[in-house]
Design a protein around this nucleic acid. Sequence first.
DNA 1: ATCTTAAGCTGATAAATATCATTTTTTCAA
DNA 2: TTGAAAAAATGATATTTATCAGCTTAAGAT
Lengths: 249, 249
Amino acid sequence: MIYVRFSFFRSWYFYTRYFRVMGRCENCIIRQFNSLRAMGNEELKAVSESKTSRKIGKGEALFGEGEKLNGVYCVRSGISKLSKLSVNGKEQVVKFAGKGEVLGQRSVIVGESSNLSAVALSDMEVCFIPKEGIVNALHKNPNFTMEVLRHMAHDLKEADDVIVNMSQKTVKQRLAEAFLYLRNNFGEDKDGFLTLTLSREDMANVVGTATESAIRFISEFKRDGLIRSSGKRIGIVNEKKLRELATGF
Amino acid sequence: MIYVRFSFFRSWYFYTRYFRVMGRCENCIIRQFNSLRAMGNEELKAVSESKTSRKIGKGEALFGEGEKLNGVYCVRSGISKLSKLSVNGKEQVVKFAGKGEVLGQRSVIVGESSNLSAVALSDMEVCFIPKEGIVNALHKNPNFTMEVLRHMAHDLKEADDVIVNMSQKTVKQRLAEAFLYLRNNFGEDKDGFLTLTLSREDMANVVGTATESAIRFISEFKRDGLIRSSGKRIGIVNEKKLRELATGF
DNA sequence: ATCTTAAGCTGATAAATATCATTTTTTCAA
DNA sequence: TTGAAAAAATGATATTTATCAGCTTAAGAT
C-alpha cells in the first residue's frame, strides 16, 4: 500500500514536472497580452481543459521547420527565436517571441506545416493549446478572429519593414538597429545589459550576415563606445549614436 | 426638353467614364479569387452599392505611403506594385498585386495609414470599397474574417520567404528567381515574353540592388542564353537553368 | 522628322561583405 | 583545476555589389 502511494506520488511529481498544469487560462495574466483575451468564457474553459504546459530548456526546439503543428504555443516565460534554414545551411532569424506571444498560429490557421522553426534562447515555460480549441473559436467568435487578424496584420507590417531594411541598410546599420530592438522588446537587467543574450552566430543570423562580419562590427561598436560587453552580455552605452547609425543620420 | 435630356446623357456618360459602375459585386467574377467570396448576400449588396470603380493609368498611384485609406481596392485588371521608399530615396518593391487581389486590407483592419505605396505598372481597373462595408463584415461574418485571415497568413509566409531570400541569396539568384516568379504569377504573351514588363529600375527595386547591377546581370543572362529580350520585354529561354541558378543547384 | 530627355548599357573603380586561416578566450565536463 | 571543445576574435584575401562617369539607344513631344 505504501509502495502504491509512493509510486503515485512519484508519477504525480513527474507529471507536474514535465507537463505542469499551471492553472486555469481564465486567470492567466499572459492572456492579456495576446489574442486569447478576446475569447469567451466557454471557449476559454475548453482551452483551459485541453491545454498542457511544458518547460523547454535553452537550446531545445518547440517545433521544427516543416513540422505539422497540432496546436499553438503560448509563451509564459522565456524567449524563442523563429528562424528558417536555407539549403546551404545558413540560418535566418525572422522573429523573436517572448512572454505573451502565441507561436504557430499561422500554420494552424492555414492548416499547413510550419514554415519556421522555433528554438528556445532561454529556458521557457509554454502552454500548448491543441488546435481544435483555436479553430473552433476562430469559426464561432468574430472578436477572437478579428484579434488574431490584427496580430497577423501587425506581424505582416513588421515583416515588410524587415524586407526593406535587409535590402536598403548596411550590415552595420542593421546590427545597430538589432541592439536597439533587443532593448526595446526585451529590456535590460539591473547591470544595464540586454536581457536577451545571443551568441555572435545568432546575432549574425538576425542581421543576415556572416558570423565573422557580425563579430567585427560588434568589436568596432565597442571601440567606438556605442556598446560594452561582458562575456556574451552586451550593454548599450550610447543609444543616441546607435540610433543615428541605424537610421543613417 | 431636348437640351435637358442631352445634358442628362452627357453627365451620365461622364459618370460612367470616370466612376464606372461596372455592375453588381454579386456577379463579379473577380470576387471568386479573393476573400470577398466569403461575404453573405446582404453584405455583398451593401458593398455593391457603396463601391465605386476607377481606371488608373500606368504609372499613377492608387495610394501613397503613409496615406490614410478609407477603403480597400479590388483589382479587376492590370498589375500594381506595392513598395516602400527609404530615406535615401531608394525604393523596395515588396509585392505585386494583379487581378483579384485586394489592396489596403491590412491598413483598414488595423486602422493605420498605409505602410506601402501602390503604383500601377499597367493600366488598371479597380473597385474602391469604402471601409465601412469591410469593417462591418469583419465584425459580423466569421467566415469572411477567417478568409481574410487566411489571405494575410499567406502573405506573411511569403514575406518571411522574401526575408530569407534577401539575406541568403546573391543578387544573381534573386534576379533569376524574380523572372520565374513573374512568369508563374502573371504569365507570358503569345510571343513568349513576360506579360508584366518592368523597367530595369523596377526590376532592381524588386531584387533589392542597384539599377546598374540589375542591368549587368540581365545582360549576363542574355549572353548565357537564359533569357532573351526585345525592348523592355523579356522572355524566358532556359527555365531549367534559371531555376538551378535561383536555388543554387 | 528632329530635338530632347529618359532609359539602357558598359567600364573603371571603390566599398562592403564573405571566406579562409589562425589565434585567443571562454565554457564546461571530468 | 585542468584539458578539450566551442565560441570569439583577428588578419589576409577573395568575392560581391555599389558608385560614378560616359556613352548609346529608345521614346515622346513639338
